[in-house]
Amino acid sequence: MAAFAGHLSEGAAIDWAALHARWILDTDPAAAPLAYTIFAVAMTTVRLLGDPIRARLGSVRTIQLAGVLATCGYVLVLGAPLTGEALRVVCAWTGWALAGVGLATVVPVIFSAVGAAGGPVGRALSLVTAFGYSGMLVGPAVLGYVAEASSLPVALIIPGALAAVIALSGAPAIRALPRADRVPVES
């Protein structure tokens, strides 16, 4: 579930950040794509630093922090239209940056935890990967249908809520995995 939520929230930013800036915030067409660029730069930067972050904080605290940051990012994005005209874009871009920072470590931490669990790692990792990437593929399209039926801000509540799911369910999911160093070796 956490991998699905992470991928869907990431896919939402990839496909909808620039359109949110253009359609909802009424950003200049030339500046609207910067929303996605800010998200991508933040995500890439933190993803490159993900292993040292996880080594320092541990997988459980890293995924909790990731979920909280991503949730805060989506709250800022969704709240941006409520701010003054001068702050709208800054608020949304800050939100996309926070979402990128938070979502950057979700999938690598989950994949690493599944790999460290031992047992039939290939089967477990393929299952987690399938659920994760289904969120990336299906999520943005579902958000498009929701946006068409209601509005883009209403659709973006979905990845914001799923970011909160990461914060709440990611840590218990990682704790529930057996660790390879605690799994008895069969003779």
Rank of each mutant, 00 (worst) to 15 (best):
M1S: 13
A5E: 01
H7F: 14
L8V: 02
E10N: 07
E10D: 08
G11K: 06
G11D: 05
D15P: 07
A18I: 04
L19Y: 07
R22I: 02
I24L: 13
L25P: 09
D26W: 00
D28Y: 04
P29G: 05
P29I: 02
P29M: 07
I38R: 00
I38Y: 00
A40Y: 03
A40G: 08
A42Y: 03
M43L: 08
T45A: 10
R47P: 02
L48C: 03
L48M: 14
I53S: 05
I53M: 06
I53T: 01
I53Q: 04
L57N: 08
L57V: 03
G58P: 13
G58A: 09
S59L: 11
Q64V: 13
G67Y: 05
V68C: 11
L69K: 00
L69W: 01
T71F: 06
T71M: 04
G73T: 00
L78M: 05
G79R: 03
G84A: 05
G84V: 11
E85L: 10
E85G: 14
L87E: 14
A92E: 01
W93T: 06
T94K: 12
W96T: 05
L98F: 08
L98I: 05
L98G: 04
V101D: 00
L103W: 01
V107T: 10
V109S: 10
G118P: 13
G118C: 10
G118E: 13
V121W: 00
G122H: 03
A124V: 11
L127Y: 12
L127F: 14
T129M: 13
T129P: 10
T129S: 15
T129D: 11
F131V: 06
S134Q: 03
M136H: 07
V138I: 15
G139K: 00
P140S: 06
A141M: 12
L143R: 12
G144C: 14
Y145A: 13
V146E: 09
A149K: 11
A149G: 15
L152P: 07
V154W: 06
A155F: 07
A155C: 12
P159E: 00
V165D: 01
I166T: 06
L168V: 15
L168W: 12
P172S: 12
P172L: 10
R175A: 15
A176E: 13
L177K: 14
P178T: 13
A180T: 13
A180R: 15
R182G: 02
P184I: 11
V185D: 10
V185A: 15
